[in-house]
Design a protein around this nucleic acid. Structure first.
Length: 493
RNA sequence: GCCAAGGUGGCAGAGUGGUCUUACGCGGUCGCCUGCAGAGCGACUACACGCCGGUUCGAAUCCGGCCCUUGGCUCCA
């Protein structure tokens, strides 16, 4: 079992070796809470989640930290909009709660901690002071900037060369020594022009010119820069360097490049061993993004498609390739989900049936289970190739069907092993829920359906197929699919 | 312009030096099964890999050039 990962730093597949052989420190660059999370975020979350789960499955103790950026001009821009809140903090709190709720809906494993910028101002100030003391940063008019030329390896993540980076145009950055220098601390309140830029003409705002929160610092009243938070917060929560640092590909430059610069300049140690970047989710021919307004919110998608099909849809492309929103592709994931779930149920039902015997052995089934386990693990170990891992689960589903279709007495031990494989790899690793949909809560509607099916069974037994088919059609029109099998009639809503 | 990722069958999407891979899935056709349908199983859906060169006994897979797409260089998962 040797995991290899594609490290953005080297651009190559590398053998994964965490600093502590038993523990993985995972940091995921989370969201700025200025809007609802959309499917692009969801896709990255699901992949990060599966990576977290696979690391645990591989025997590591995973410490997972995921920041929440709750200080930002875009948040301030929404102050006074509808009932979002009348302060930066109120807007941020509302979106944060929504975000955590979306994550639960997607069946994501919780991070150990979700640090927020507003709770780490002292750590940020300490880090900025260290950078000034070591001559990596300088203060001008109450703002502090990182001096990119003070860090020799600047550009090593993104391969950007300083002289090739297009200089920014705006004049108010002229106090920087070099256009590529970036703010660690910004003097004064929020930039009113930036806030105005983020406001939308088609919306009403109860607060005309909202002000963001500011904090005291050795350089006067101000706000932290964008990049510094991740360095300060990861240092606060992941004591010894990060093993895996993840985020979207759009963060490689400048965000992650700057994180490396300021962190390694301050500590003299490597900030993160492996940088993994999830490629972006596209809507037609451009990325899905809040600022472009072309997004499908998680809150709409989960009830509409279901969490299992959505997860399968995301996992049907590897994390480091782009994926495009397509209802046809989500439909395909639904079909695949139904196939997997029905095979799981068949395995469970037949294993529990009287026809299952410990004396029966089906070598083909057992070989399929072994193959499936092996190829699933091999796929995940090769940079988390979830699509290939799904192939292994589909093969397992196929083996169950072949076994059950082809035998009158079932291989109990083989089926138990099959079920265990679905539960370990499908449920624990891929985060699918095989049991949730139908079991436990029989509603009145379910009982009425059973009643109709009983009537239909009587009609069929009496040879009244016309009447039986009409009942089936009526149920179908209500969205209830009826299936007759050797073992009786089942239905699916 | 610079940096990065990518261009594979009707769709979607793995593979990354050689008939066991045109994987897996979706869609479509046919067969088995079924009272019928669905599900399931089996077969098929012209030996596809952006273009042009090169290396090699052999390339979708390596090298070079070109075209195109997406992302980054400004807030962004």
């Amino acid at each position: 079992m040797t995991l290899r990962v594609l490290n953005t730093l080297s651009g190559e597949l590398e053998l994964f070796e965490p600093a502590d052989p038993e523990r993985v420190l995972l940091y995921y660059c989370g969201l700025t809470v200025s809007d609802f999370a959309h499917l692009g975020h969801a896709r990255t979350w699901v992949h990060v989640d599966v990576i977290h789960r696979w690391l645990e499955q591989s025997g590591y103790d995973v410490r997972h930290v995921e920041n929440i950026t709750d200080v930002n001009e875009k948040i301030v821009a929404r102050v006074g909009e509808d009932d979002l809140g009348d302060s930066e903090r109120a807007v941020a709190t509302g979106f944060t709660e929504q975000l955590l709720s979306d994550m639960r809906a997607l069946n994501l494993k919780r991070a150990e901690v979700y640090p927020r910028v507003t709770e780490h101002i002292p750590e940020i100030i300490d880090l900025v002071e260290t950078l000034i003391e070591t001559d990596h940063a300088y203060e001008v008019n109450g703002s502090v900037y990182f001096d990119v030329h003070s860090f020799d390896e600047y550009g090593k993540l993104s391969n950007q060369r300083l002289d090739a980076v297009e200089p920014q145009e705006d004049g108010d950055r002229s106090e920087k020594r070099d256009p590529a220098d970036f703010a660690l601390w910004k003097a004064g309140g929020v930039d009113a022009d930036a806030v105005t830029d983020h406001r939308r003409a088609d919306r009403e705002y109860a607060v005309e010119t909202p002000s963001g929160e500011t904090w005291d610092s050795p350089w006067g009243e101000g706000r932290p820069g964008w990049h510094i938070e991740c360095s300060a917060m990861s240092m606060a929560h992941l004591d010894t360097g990060i093993d895996i640092h993840m985020g979207g590909r759009d963060l490689v430059f400048p965000h992650h490049e700057n994180e490396i610069a300021q962190s390694e300049a301050a500590t003299g140690e490597r900030f993160a061993r492996y940088w993994l970047h999830a490629d972006l989710f596209q809507m037609d021919d451009e990325k899905m993004s809040s600022s472009l307004g072309n997004f499908v919110p998680v809150t709409d998608a989960v009830p509409r498609f279901g969490v299992n099909p959505l997860r399968l849809f995301f996992l049907s492309a590897s994390y480091n390739s782009t994926q495009t929103y397509s209802e046809a592709a989500i439909h395909e994931a639904e079909e695949r989900w139904e196939g997997l779930q029905s095979a799981y149920r068949r395995a469970s039902e037949t294993a529990d049936s009287a026809a299952a015997r410990t004396t029966v052995t089906d070598d083909a089934l057992r070989a399929s289970v072994a193959d499936s386990r092996e190829s699933f693990a091999a796929a995940m170990d090769e940079d988390f190739n979830t699509r290939e891992a799904l192939t292994a689960l589909s093969a397992l589903a196929s083996a169950v069907n072949t076994h059950v279709d082809g035998h009158d007495a079932y291989d109990y031990r083989g089926l138990r092993r099959t079920i265990e494989t679905f539960e370990t790899f499908g449920a624990d690793v891929l985060g699918l829920d095989f049991t949730g949909d139908t079991e436990g809560t029989a509603t009145v509607a379910d009982e009425l359906i059973e009643l109709v099916l009983d009537v239909r069974a009587d009609e069929r037994a009496a040879g009244n197929y016309d009447r039986a088919d009409r009942l089936r059609d009526r149920l179908d029109a209500l969205g209830i699919t009826v299936q007759d099998t050797d073992d009786g009639t089942s239905y699916r809503r």
